[in-house]
Simulated scan of single mutants.
Amino acid sequence: MTAQRASLLAKEIRQEIVRLKLAGFHLLPLGRGDDGKTPGIGNWTAPKVELGQVLAPLHRHGVGVYGVRLDGLAVIDCDHDDPALVTEMEARFGPSPVHVLTPRGRHLYYRAGGATPNLRAEGLPVDLKSGGRSYVVGPLSQRPDGGRYVPAKGVLGVERLPVIYGAKTVTGAPEPIREGERHQALVSEAIAMVETVSGPDELTARLVVLRDERCAAPSSMPDAELRGIADWTWQRLLRGELYHGRDSAFSVHRLAHDALRGKPGGSDAIALYVLLVDLHGHDPGKRFALDHGAMKAAGLTDLSARGFRAARRMLENEGLLGVATKYRPGSHRQQYRLERLRPGMDAAPNVARISEIAPRGKDGEEGGKD
């Protein structure tokens, strides 16, 4: 079968590539080989493959296949789309919020963590892939032989990926959550389940079960700590402060609006600021590039290049956007971070770190530690 020209796939494939790239995923151009799954560049394991290096070979060779490199990710690659097999994998490794149908089977996405057992050696038609030297074909790709990769559940880059539990122990349970990781692991679990409970009492009860079943040394983690996690999570649910991908609210500080309103070009700056808070405000301390061309190609902005630059400069001048990493030729682009204004104070990061807002563990230690 003749490969489809990239121009026919631009609206779907290109926008998906740009969206995932802006979300921080490491992507690769594919398209070589009979099945189109071989990387289209030589040094694909380099620390960073730029967006242009991904898109250019696809346009040049007229293919619509790209790869998601598994830096910090893990994918369960099932040879067959067998419901019983998928259920078995999720029972063993935890549920995945992102499923992609492949020409033969199904991909289940997770964040990397714990052991990566050889499932083939166990007689299962499954590969567990992880690491910077591994990749899978990305969602919406279409191979030259016609094989498609169709999202079946959730959206990669939108859904919050859980850490894969790792190998089963002899008893059949996931590996225990280690001391030093228990508190933040249960905060993450509480956020994931809070919308399914009737209140903080039920949430606390579920956390008690998780602590007793999955945490190392559960007796050293008091019930009061779990109640604190449950109360904190419930209050943030009520205030709309929890991030659940696109199905969630986010807030914009009124001081930011006041700083921009009524100024020449202020409406453009407000629009850019709201977009940046939407894309990055939920990720504490996140650094990001501002590439007008890529953002426009992804449908994220309709500002002209001049208007975009003017809006960005206004955000910088008003202390709402700061330079996190300066541009270095041959190294990386300039990166930014969001900041917010506080009366009588210098600019500060716009989103408090988890350690500042999440409930503390025993002995006053920060969120994410015991």
Rank of each mutant, 00 (worst) to 15 (best):
Arg160Thr: 13
Ser188Leu: 14
Ala192Gln: 10
Gly199Met: 01
Thr169Ser: 13
Glu175Thr: 09
Pro151Val: 03
Val158Ala: 15
His183Gln: 15
Val150Asn: 07
Gly154Ala: 10
Gly172Glu: 06
Lys153Arg: 14
Thr204Trp: 09
Gly180Met: 04
Leu156Met: 05
Pro162Val: 07
Asp201Asn: 11
Val158Trp: 07
Val155Ile: 09
Gly180Trp: 04
Arg211Ile: 09
Gly180Arg: 05
Ala192Glu: 14
Gln142Thr: 15
Gln184Tyr: 12
Thr171Arg: 12
Glu159Phe: 06
Ala205Arg: 11
Gln142Leu: 15
Thr204Ser: 14
Ile191Asp: 01
Arg182Trp: 09
Lys168Gly: 14
Glu159Leu: 06
Glu195Ala: 15
Glu179Asp: 09
Thr204Phe: 11
Gly180Val: 02
Glu202Thr: 05
Thr171Val: 11
Arg206Trp: 06
Leu161Asp: 01
Val150His: 12
Met193His: 06
Ala185Glu: 11
Leu203Ser: 01
Val194Gly: 01
Thr196Gln: 10
Asp201Gln: 13
Met193Glu: 15
Asp145Phe: 06
Val163Lys: 10
Val209Tyr: 12
Ile177Lys: 02
Leu203Val: 02
Gly172Cys: 02
Ile191Arg: 07
Ser141Leu: 08
Pro176Ser: 06
Asp212Asn: 15
Arg211Trp: 08
Gly154Leu: 08
Leu156Glu: 05
Arg178Ile: 11
Leu203Asn: 02
Arg143Cys: 07
Arg182Ser: 08
Pro151Glu: 04
Tyr149Asp: 01
Arg214Thr: 09
Gly146Met: 12
Leu156Tyr: 04
Gly154Val: 08
Lys153Phe: 05
Gln142Gly: 08
Glu179Ser: 09
Val187Trp: 05
Pro162Asp: 10
Ser188Val: 05
Val163Glu: 15
Asp201Arg: 07
Val187Thr: 07
Asp145Trp: 05
Ile164Val: 13
Glu175Gln: 12
Ser198Lys: 00
Glu181Asn: 13
Glu189Val: 04
Gly147Thr: 00
Arg206Lys: 13
Val197Ile: 02
